[in-house]
Simulated assay, not measured.
Amino acid sequence: MKKPTASIVDHFEELADPRIERNKKHALIDIIVLTICAVITGSETWEEIEDYGHYKEEWLKSFLPLQNGIPSHDTIRRLFIRLNPDELQRCFMSWIEAVRDVIAGDVIAVDGKTLRRSGDQVSGKLPIHMVSAWAAGSGVLLGQKKTAEKSNEITAIPALLELLKIKGCIVTIDAIGCQSEIAATIQNKKADYVLALKGNQKNLHEDVKYFYHELEEKDLAEEWLDSHTTVDKDHGRIEIREYYQSDEIAWLPELKNFVGAKTIGMVKATRIIGKKQSTECRYYISSLPIDAQRFAHAVRSHWSVENTLHWTLDMTFREDDSRMREGYSAENFAMMRRLALSLMKRDKYSKKSLKRRRRIAHLDNSYLTQMLFSSDEAIDRRLPG
């Protein structure tokens, strides 16, 4: 069977065009690919996308029709206001399936992020909150779902998971996603879960907390638990993380509501800066069998959605500064940023920062061409330095 092409153009050719016929002066695929290229190389506004197009028109014509030249920024803006976000995501996920092979044991971190300036106090429009599924190992976004506010993550997470191919993976979610229905959805998709515990599962949280406290008090940790410890040192700061896992769960009645639950876990994080020391404990339930090192890997990988995806979107792509609010523009442009990030993360050879890679992609058309059209194996452009 022929492997699907990795060309980004091929996967967006079937995108439904929301425009009426008389307004289709520029081909839809021209506008979409122009925007992707512009976002990768640093454009953050409709005007900057148009400017990028004019400066790169000759190169863009090497693989795009551009029969009527470069669209104006108003044309680009109007399209993204009306473009169906679900259709855009369908094309994105088609491309992801072509370039990413699901590997058993991959950690899929599910977490939400608010686009802070996408709301409007005058009109009463709330900021958009996006729930994303991030493949921690390969560093690519698998999908996203918009909610009206953070509390609606409970309904958005199962809907997002239903779209994904996650068989054999480990899904990690913060405490807001510690719901029996979400656990059942993950198990039905033939995947495992590690779910954080907090106040939304108050009784279960308190029981697990009490269990670990008692073991520590009575010095029974070695007998009842599997454990793993990591120590990180950086710029005068020491972080010690102790991971504990137990399969002694028969006494927890509320855990029976969670399909496939096998273990409970605790992470004891101690931070030492100079003479100051602080300790925090976090608690989890999981469908994983007892293996503290594997549990530790899942928990640490989940933090990458904050440290890699969300931090990069804010610091490199300046997402929180964006004032796009009309129609579907904020949601659709959020997908463009995440697509750009996923394309850049496929370059496994360069050790340069993403900021520098964006700059090089702006200067070197051949490097950007490989991002757009190559399979993972073919991305072998080792940048100088």
Rank of each mutant, 00 (worst) to 15 (best):
F63W: 08
R19K: 14
L64A: 01
K56R: 15
E21V: 15
E21R: 07
E48H: 09
H26Q: 07
D30W: 00
L28W: 01
V39C: 11
I32M: 06
L60G: 05
E57C: 10
L28K: 08
D30K: 01
P65Y: 06
E58L: 10
V39D: 03
E48S: 11
P71R: 02
I36S: 13
V39N: 09
I29D: 08
S62L: 04
F63V: 04
L64M: 04
I49F: 13
W59G: 10
F63Y: 04
L28S: 08
L66Q: 02
L28M: 09
T45E: 02
W59K: 03
E44S: 10
T45C: 07
Y52F: 15
D30G: 04
V39Y: 04
C37E: 08
E50G: 10
L60R: 01
V33N: 07
H54P: 03
S62Q: 12
N23F: 15
K24R: 08
T41W: 05
P71H: 04
I49P: 06
W46E: 09
A27W: 00
K25M: 09
E47W: 06
E50T: 06
N23H: 13
I29V: 12
I31Y: 00
N68D: 09
P65N: 06
Y55A: 08
L60E: 01
E44I: 13
E57N: 02
A27N: 03
V39H: 06
W59Y: 10
